[in-house]
Nucleic acid binder design. Structure first.
Lengths: 248, 248
DNA sequence: AAAAATCATGCACAAATATGCAAAAAAAGT
DNA sequence: ACTTTTTTTGCATATTTGTGCATGATTTTT
């Protein structure tokens, strides 16, 4: 087997699997690992892959992940656009925390006169920039990571409210498991938010669809509306439509 | 599984959920938690996430409006230095809003374990960066300009507290008129803060000394300690010393 | 204040790597 | 055909890397 042939084989493997292991290749091609390493070195010099300890990985994968690690802003803006059309003058609206919610607030028309209630500090800060809406913060002990208030006091206060809409910047949503999250105290507050508003709207970028975390907020049928950046008729959303959710 | 693959997986999880737990990842990737910790360390070094106790969180979620230009920064830092020496472990401390207060918070030793209570959103946000203190936000309707909560509910809640210290980022202070401010609703809250703490400390850059505004918070003798960037024996501070204020 | 969880650190061991060298294979020149 | 030269390959060796475990320190929770 010629060197060129080996190189072609390796390139094909990278295309298919996005990675190769030196040990695998050594077996498949019947040459020593030293030779494979030299092959990988040459292919890397030619800019066709990235060598790592143990083998090599595709260059494209590497790059796409790097760029993707930034915040999915366009998706969130697209979600915000759809979400804001649900809010009308005079409504009482509960907002959770999260970057998607921040984008929603930024996209609100300045002359909208609604009352927003939140437990999230960053959300509150963003709401303060809105000229004509009223902002109410339900305070208590603040949770460091989540930057929101939690505890019995908050839940008590929320129970005195009957909101029209509740927007949740979702962490994880799944047809089987419903809405899930990581922290007990956060869960408790989100439950109360859902309970005390007429409609619950989950804002999820599609990457978060069909993901599950440790703790359950509510089953899927307690969510009234699901908003993603996808087209509502997208195949990926079918399971949710089948569960009677309105998908926007 | 290659190390880089694990890294890619972790990055994706962070991207989706803003947070990962070492224990989860250890299970999902079938490696020891030590390895996960080393992975997180490397990703942090690469600037892709922030490591925290138990796992890591997304960098994008780290709210840092840290660059908001603070005027008279050196003076305010000098004030912050003096003020922080008054706070001890276990104390309950009321904080108002304002950039001087923000500087005070930034200058706090990371291992200080105190309970901070505030009504100001920017103050709360800054406090959330402090690793070991507890933060309580007294919420209600938020005032847009002052970025703080106001109203009867707040005053009621404050009255249930007995704090050790109350730091006021002063707007105007004058020997004759005492502390004064511009907005009715703000005044009401500050009155309540003063009333419900053992000691009141006014933080004032010297430019604000001997200035008066429309509405009165309290007479000068209700302030226990006055902190400015000046030397305590400065001539300018003599009238305040004469009124039995402790000047630092 | 005690208990549990999480962390940093050093160590050991295995896997993977780089390097020099020599044998084998291929290419080139005579 | 037969050297001579160049390229390729495998092996031995020392080095580096990745991983898990033990330990004691730190942090969090109770």
């Amino acid at each position: 087997m010629l060197k060129k042939e080996r190189h072609a084989f390796i390139k094909r493997e990278i295309d298919i699997h996005n990675k190769v292991l030196s040990s695998d290749l050594s077996g498949q091609l019947n040459v020593s690992e030293d030779t494979i390493r030299r092959d990988l070195q040459e292919l890397e010099d030619a800019g066709l892959l990235t060598k790592v300890h143990g083998g090599a990985i595709s260059k494209s994968i590497q790059f796409s992940l790097h760029e993707n690690a930034v915040y999915s802003l366009p998706e969130k803006q697209s979600i915000a656009e759809k979400a804001r059309s649900l809010i009308r003058d005079g409504m009482i609206v509960l907002l959770s925390g999260g970057t998607t919610i921040i984008e929603l607030i930024r996209s609100l028309p300045p002359n909208l006169r609604a009352t927003f209630i939140t437990v999230s500090i960053p959300t509150a800060l963003e709401l303060l920039n809105h000229p004509s809406s009223e902002v109410i913060f339900v305070g208590n002990k603040l949770l460091k990571n989540a930057q929101m208030s939690v505890g019995a006091e908050v839940i008590q206060k929320l129970s005195e409210i009957k909101a029209d809409l509740c927007f949740l910047g979702t962490n994880s949503i799944d047809v089987q498991e419903g809405l899930t999250d990581l922290e007990w105290e956060v869960i408790e507050v989100k439950k109360a938010m859902i309970k005390n508003s007429r409609k619950t709207i989950s804002l999820s970028i599609s990457k978060k669809l069909n993901t599950v975390q440790r703790l359950k907020i509510c089953p899927i049928n307690e969510v009234d509306i699901l908003i993603t950046e996808l087209n509502p008729s997208d195949e990926m959303l079918k399971p949710y439509r089948d569960q009677q959710l309105t998908v926007l």
